Simulated scan of single mutants.
Amino acid sequence: MPALLRSFTPADILARLPELGALLQECVHDGASIGFILPFDSAASQAFWMDNVLPALTRGVRLLLVAEVEGKVAGAVQLDWDTNPNQAHRAEVRKLLVAPAFRRSGIARLLMQALEEQARQLSRSLLTLDTRSSDHAQGLYLSLGYVVAGSIPAYALAPAGDRLDATTIMYKQL
């Protein structure tokens, strides 16, 4: 069954908090370098959505796109345009997540393409993001036309807490 994309509202976050929390937790436990380290429990995962994403959605400075497959949350991505006045032309891609059971099915590409269309509608002509260097996601971003601006060594602690990983900074002009 194909994925259905929806723009989540603050009410949707509250109604689907356990599923969003499970998505984030699954991705972290699967090794995704998205800002969290193990141990990472459901309370911490749900707190991210409540304390970080919900306030930004409520303020109208972030978009949360969610992919659903057969009614189940399968993936998500955020567009953050909470920028200074001299950066009103750009936005940041945040937390592209696809549940391990749904990977390699085109959901990440679908989410990114929809996110780019939303950015265009917001008159954002430059998107930026960072990803763990040599991660699978880097290949996806390159295939979507993102350009490597550079890399920073020892940028973030790996999810297992056992090493420092480099990050690659990327951008795309829309």
Rank of each mutant, 00 (worst) to 15 (best):
residue 94 R to F: 03
residue 28 V to R: 01
residue 144 L to G: 06
residue 7 S to A: 13
residue 16 R to L: 02
residue 53 V to N: 02
residue 9 T to P: 01
residue 121 Q to D: 10
residue 107 I to W: 09
residue 144 L to D: 06
residue 172 K to S: 02
residue 79 L to F: 02
residue 73 V to M: 04
residue 66 V to A: 04
residue 111 L to T: 03
residue 120 R to Q: 14
residue 111 L to S: 04
residue 114 A to H: 12
residue 144 L to H: 07
residue 97 L to V: 04
residue 119 A to T: 06
residue 92 E to L: 00
residue 118 Q to E: 15
residue 174 L to H: 11
residue 70 E to A: 11
residue 34 I to Q: 13
residue 110 L to W: 05
residue 45 S to V: 02
residue 139 G to A: 14
residue 35 G to F: 05
residue 109 R to P: 00
residue 21 G to M: 10
residue 74 A to K: 05
residue 155 Y to Q: 10
residue 115 L to C: 09
residue 100 P to C: 09
residue 48 F to Q: 10
residue 15 A to H: 13
residue 63 L to D: 11
residue 124 R to I: 08
residue 137 A to F: 04
residue 31 G to T: 09
residue 23 L to P: 07
residue 95 K to V: 10
residue 87 Q to S: 13
residue 107 I to G: 10
residue 116 E to W: 05
residue 137 A to N: 08
residue 48 F to N: 04
residue 45 S to F: 03
residue 121 Q to E: 13
residue 23 L to D: 12
residue 58 T to G: 07
residue 88 A to Y: 00
residue 136 H to F: 06
residue 87 Q to G: 12
residue 113 Q to Y: 00
residue 47 A to N: 13
residue 118 Q to S: 14
residue 62 R to F: 00
residue 12 D to A: 03
residue 137 A to L: 09
residue 52 N to Q: 15
residue 11 A to Y: 00
residue 74 A to N: 03
residue 167 T to D: 11
residue 161 G to R: 11
residue 103 R to F: 03
residue 109 R to E: 13
residue 165 D to S: 01
residue 164 L to K: 13
